[in-house]
Nucleic acid binder design. Structure first.
Length: 919
RNA sequence: GGUCGCUUAGCUCAGCUGGUAGAGCGCCACGUUCACAUCGUGGAUGUCGCAGGUUCGAGUCCUGCAGCGACCACCA
């Protein structure tokens, strides 16, 4: 049967069938009964739901591979391992996609109207949405697909509605006028997290505001005290100077502020200022927000267009005047000359108008961070508007406590601090979005003024009985459904068995970028609505970046398509490469211009596993395999050694998985399989597996090989499920031992202290030393590959000598040694060396290599290098050179001299070894 | 400005509780011995950012300095 296996691993030939077989075997699904009645311990992960319109990218590839590794590992441990999949309706993102499609037909969403547009989005989502879940199957994800959820499902919408009403009834949801981040293009509010600041070179303009005449006397005195904001037009009017990066907002100024303890301006507080271009008069007020040290210590206050200024207005009682429309054009409150202008046009116009009146004092360069819309990149406009908010402070308390007392852990741990810092300074959450796609806010307004917040759609007003109710037009922030995900997927608020069995979940794996957006809010929701944490371990993985360190993204075109990688090298290769690169807390670098190079580690390893398995299956033959216990007496050193190593590796793998040290798991398994099983065990055991080998030793080797491969495949399975299960399924099985029906549910190997064999490990270590040293000496002295050599050892211990005597066949095979003399000796021409164990090696070379020719070659080499060295030393002795050449050149020359000197010394040593002895 | 983190081989990074510096990729040489050239064997390359300190011993702990980065908050 083994002849069927190709010499190269071809993942396309096995992966799809394997996945189908698992699905048909029903290995992904877990029922509540298994936990509640069967007593199985659950292990649950809810997937971070990708956007319903998303296409798999490498970030998903990484995150979902991590989750699948954990899920598969726990499943093998016997846990009721459940991974719940699903997608997110992704408000703005999805609406944008459909709006763009409409735009291609020259239509806007307004042309369709709300209901038709939402229906359009639905049909788009039904047709093309969720393809990412299909793509997850190609990378091997073992989600329980029967539990797939969507944040707009009826069940989940019920949870959203319940939560809104619950919070509203607790006075934790309120509606208020606030300055929010507004995207004038998307026409919606953005949370702080959705407004992405970007450093930009801006300008700071200095504007002059004339003081009302009655304040001139005070102004003159203030100027005498060093009030730098004050100035005068010759002998005429007094004015003050304020600075701004957004001059157009001055049209909405309703005050000028100074710090209350700023002595310079104390007499001017309460005085009036004539606001240019508007004909309005505004007061000077005192507020602690002003930094007396910055600029002139005087600030223009625009409450409707700046969050800080809005707060100043709240404290000082000055007016709030909105001069812009929702498109960020100048609105009806702006002077007629500017009305209708876009904000940037208005900026120019205002500057020109001020300049014309001599009120522009100048400008200076100014670097500051300007927030942009995370979706469309438009400059965000702070905007006064009526929005719904959640009071977060009360929700944050238990969620903060959970981190502090260790109920919830963060990996890497540094995120704990970041999380706690954010929670301690939490702000209210603006949850309304001016979109059509999403959960409609469950609030109705009656003409009588009554506000109805209800779990069911009301038909009439409970206050006046009118049926003229109007629902709030806004929808909820996408995260308002996402934060309920860990329990809404199990049917909450309905009491049910799934919830009992699977909530709280265990691990949440995601990117640190959404720690605040999502993770923190889920924790708060868990405590508020179910009184318990939604999960107990938060694992935050790194970002996938390109060779230049840039985040992989569609817009930069530097992404690598995971499906392409699967097509080229297989899912196993991709999974291994990703896990092998994700050391805790570090980002992953892949080169999109060299996909093959990026994934060669995984591809090569998968191929290595395949070929080792292929060889083993061929060598094992068809006959029955004996159980380990029955061949115990016939085990050879290498058998005991590799079984001990397997045990050790299993222990390390378990420990590292528990601590999310996935990179270490991958690396350890790679070295165990390649560096120990393949490089040593298989090589050592080849002779013993031959048909004509001694029966007892052959059976011991067969049993050990099966045991080791079984163990190795189990350990590798979570990371490389396809190649391992394909080979595992073909392994012959020890007689009388029960064989699990599939590797995917085979028991995870747990380490046992009594399976560690210290003696075997130590002896094997010295044996490996010996082989490596002989190989090295052979190469160094140019012994031809096929030539056999004799090895003399002195200073051996009896056990070492015995071990070597037993391993002569192996030494022949591994190092082309035809005889080992352990009684010391070893005179004559040859190579000497000392092992770590202190044993001395002598390799006679007389008759093995042409000593005279080697001597001649060495002498030639030495004189050649000596010439180079002499030249270099001459240069270094030359004062002209050392004095005038650039320092780095001289340093390089010194380095060269040192290296050459070392080389010569080494060659001389070798020469002496060959010459010294009498031949 | 605040907080956190990073600086180890040409590149990307491991090195978890202090005990003789590691991996992958790349590089050099040799190799068609029947699992694998997506391979084998051997090799070269590091004053572990700089300066101090604790210790028998420090890449690992402490202090300072320099450079880089992330996040948060932003000063008009």
């Amino acid at each position: 049967m083994s002849q069927e296996l190709a010499t190269r691993f071809d993942p396309r030939a096995i992966e799809p069938q394997r996945y189908r077989a698992w699905q048909e075997g029903g290995y992904f699904g877990v029922s509540a009964a298994e936990v509640l009645e069967g007593g199985r311990q659950p292990y649950v992960i809810v997937i971070p739901p990708p956007n319903v319109t998303a296409v798999l990218h490498m970030g998903h590839g990484l995150n979902n591979t991590i989750q699948d590794v954990l899920i598969r590992w726990r499943r093998m441990q016997g846990r009721a391992s459940l991974w719940v999949p699903g997608t997110d309706h992704a408000g703005i993102a999805t609406q944008n996609v459909v709006e763009r499609l409409l735009a291609e037909e020259g239509k806007t969403r307004h042309d369709l109207g709300r209901d038709a547009f939402v229906e359009e989005v639905w049909s788009f989502v039904r047709e093309t949405g969720g393809q990412i879940l299909e793509q997850l199957k190609a990378i091997g994800s073992t989600c329980d697909w029967d539990r797939t959820r969507f944040t707009l499902d009826e069940e989940l919408s019920r949870a959203v509605r319940e939560v809104f009403v619950h919070l509203y009834d607790k006075d934790l949801i309120y509606r208020g006028e606030y300055i929010i981040n507004w995207c004038p293009r998307c026409h919606t509010a953005l949370s702080n997290e959705e407004a992405e600041p970007e450093e930009s070179e801006g300008r700071l303009w200095h504007l002059r505001y004339p003081l009302a005449e009655e304040a001139w006397t005070a102004a003159a005195e203030a100027a005498g005290r060093g009030a730098s904001a004050l100035g005068r037009d010759g002998d005429a009017r007094w004015y003050l100077t304020v600075s701004t990066t957004r001059p157009e907002t001055m049209l909405g100024d309703t005050g000028v502020a100074v710090h209350p303890s700023d002595e310079r301006y104390r007499d001017l507080v309460g005085a009036n200022v004539e606001l240019p271009l508007t004909g309005r008069t505004i007061p000077i007020v005192a507020d602690t927000h002003v930094d007396p040290e910055f600029g002139s210590g005087m600030v223009k206050v625009t409450p409707a267009h700046d969050p800080n200024d809005f707060e100043i207005a709240g404290r000082t009682g000055i007016d709030v005047l909105n001069v812009m429309t929702e498109d960020a054009h100048m609105g009806e409150n702006a002077p007629e000359a500017f009305r209708g202008l876009d904000r940037f046009e208005a900026r120019e116009a205002v500057l020109a108008a001020l300049d014309a009146q001599g009120l522009l004092a100048g400008e200076s360069a100014h670097t500051h961070a300007v927030p942009h819309c995370y979706r469309c990149h438009t400059v965000v406009e702070p905007r006064l508007s009526l929005q719904w908010f959640v009071k977060m402070k009360p929700l944050a308390e238990p969620a903060l406590q959970a981190s502090r007392d260790g109920t919830i852990t963060f990996t890497p741990e540094r995120w704990k601090k970041v999380y706690e810092h954010w929670m301690e300074n939490i702000r209210d959450w603006c949850i309304s979005r001016q979109l059509w796609w999403g959960h409609r806010i469950p609030v109705w307004y009656c003409t009588c003024g009554e506000v109805i917040v209800s779990r069911e759609d009301p038909t009439s007003c409970p206050a006046c009985g009118s049926d003229q109710l109007e629902q709030d037009p806004d929808v909820l922030d996408t995260w308002f459904s996402s934060w309920l995900w860990p329990f809404s997927v199990f049917g909450w608020p309905e009491e049910n068995e799934d919830l009992d069995a699977f909530y709280p979940t265990h691990t949440l794996s995601t990117a640190p970028e959404i720690l605040f957006f999502w993770v923190a809010r889920m924790i708060m929701a868990g405590y508020e609505f179910l009184g318990s944490p939604p999960f107990t371990q938060v694992y935050l993985h790194g970002t996938v970046r390109d060779a230049m360190g840039r985040k992989m993204s569609k817009s930069l075109g530097n992404g690598i398509d995971p499906l392409q990688v699967v097509e080229m090298f297989g899912a196993d290769a991709m999974r291994f490469t990703l896990i092998n690169s994700c050391a805790v807390g570090t980002d992953i670098f892949l080169d999109h211009e060299d996909v093959e190079g990026s994934f060669s580690v995984g591809r090569n390893f998968a191929n290595k596993i395949w070929n080792a398995g292929r060889f083993a299956l061929m060598s094992l033959g068809e006959g029955p395999v004996k159980p380990l216990a029955t061949v115990a007496d016939a085990l050879e050193l290498e058998d005991r050694w590799i079984l001990s190593r397997l045990n050790h590796t299993a222990g390390a793998a378990t420990e590292n998985l528990e601590r999310f040290r996935l990179h270490e798991v991958a690396e350890d398994l790679y070295h165990f399989f390649w560096g120990e099983v393949c490089d040593w065990y298989l090589e050592l055991v080849k002779g013993r597996l031959a048909e004509d080998a001694h029966q007892a030793t052959r059976e011991a080797a067969r049993t050990t090989l099966v045991t080791v491969l079984d163990g190795a495949f189990r350990l590798l399975h979570p990371i490389m499920p396809f190649v391992t299960s394909e080979l595992w399924a073909r392994l012959p099985w020890p007689e009388g031992q029960e064989r699990p029906e599939d590797l995917i549910v085979a028991a995870w190997p747990e380490a046992a202290p009594d399976r560690t064999d210290e003696d075997a490990e130590a002896l094997m270590g010295t044996f490996r030393d010996l082989v490596i040293e002989v190989r090295r000496l052979r190469k160094e002295y140019g012994v031809a590959e096929g030539t056999r050599v004799t090895v003399h050892l002195s200073g051996t211990t009896p056990s070492f000598a015995a071990m070597v005597a037993e391993r002569e066949g192996s030494l022949e095979r591994l190092a082309r040694v035809n005889e080992v003399v352990t009684s010391g000796g070893g005179d004559g021409v040859g190579a000497h060396s000392v092992l770590h164990s202190g044993v001395e090696i002598f390799l006679p070379l007389k008759g093995v290599i042409d000593v005279d020719r080697e001597l001649e070659r060495l002498r030639g080499e030495i004189s050649r290098i000596q010439d180079l060295l002499t030249g270099t030393e001459k240069r270094l002795a030359n004062e002209q050179f050392v004095g005038r050449a650039p320092e780095e050149v001289v340093a390089k020359e010194r380095e060269k001299a040192r290296a050459l000197g070392e080389q010569v010394a080494k060659l001389r040593e070798k020469l002496e070894a060959l010459e010294g002895a009498d031949r």
